[in-house]
């Protein structure tokens, strides 16, 4: 599994994501600076990490989505490449148009950092195959703008196409239909607000998030 993590100047979960990729696959992730215009050759998956890419003083992820590297990420995804965006990474992916919907200020207005229970809505993706559909996993959230907003017809379509990857059991941010993570049409791009990489190590109190990275390693080992 050859992975890369995109680094914006305000990324702060880039190392965490790289550690999770490496723990699952045994291969070190390459860190790619946002001013690069091209990606390393032969990548299997790109991670867009959490953080505050450009301070998030405008819409979260809006400037990052227009950075040089993001054009390369979009091209990579359009050619069928796999992309995982977590937290700010999910915001970036919606801003690029690779994933539908938008992420708005939390319904409770405040930043929220705590463990939440997620329901795995589909095991039919390279990100979720190690889980069972309907399984409940406990993973932290940490965001100010995690309120996923989608019009009813989009929600209906996401459901019909089995593209809701995770939903909240106890919605922490007001997201439409409790949606916590969504897949692209080809199921090879996932964006999610919760942080599976923060719960992928027994020393940190649990490994419920490790299944996501194990799914990826399995999918890419057999690819």
């Amino acid at each position: 599994m050859k992975s890369a993590v995109i680094v914006f100047p305000g990324s702060n979960c880039d190392r965490d994501l790289a550690v999770a990729f490496e723990q699952a696959s045994g291969t070190r992730a390459q860190m790619v600076w946002h001013k690069e215009t091209a990606l390393p050759q032969g990548l299997d998956i790109i991670g867009i990490p959490g953080g505050f890419s450009f301070g998030d003083y405008l819409r979260c992820g809006a400037i990052a989505a227009r950075s040089p590297i993001c054009q390369a990420v979009v091209d990579f995804a359009r050619r069928g490449g796999m992309v995982l965006g977590i937290c700010n990474g999910f915001q970036v992916l919606t801003e690029t148009g690779l994933l539908p919907g938008v992420l708005m200020r939390n319904a409770g207005i405040k930043f929220v950092c705590k463990d939440v229970d997620l329901q795995v809505e589909t095991a039919d993706s390279p990100f979720t195959s190690a889980y069972a559909r309907g399984q409940v996993i406990r993973v932290p959230v940490a965001h100010h703008d995690g309120n996923y907003v989608a019009p009813p017809e989009l929600v209906a379509r996401l459901r019909a196409e089995d593209r809701v990857a995770f939903s909240y059991r106890d919605n922490p941010n007001g997201s439409t239909a409790d949606i916590a993570g969504v897949l692209s049409e080809n199921r090879r791009v996932l964006g999610m607000m919760p942080h599976p990489e923060r719960r992928a190590d027994p020393a940190l109190g649990g490994t419920d998030g490790a299944g996501l990275f194990r799914s990826l390693a399995d999918a890419l080992a057999t690819a």
């Binding site: 979960c13 550690v19 999770a20 930043f111 950092c113 940490a142 942080h195 923060r198 020393a203 940190l204």
Partner: peptide, 27 residues
Amino acid sequence: QWVYEQYDHMVMADTIRRPGMGAGIVR
């Protein structure tokens, strides 16, 4: 909780003991 849930207490993915009781611990 009202206070510390507004603080990211897990970024860097080394937090072993979170806020709430006694000392916090990071690896």
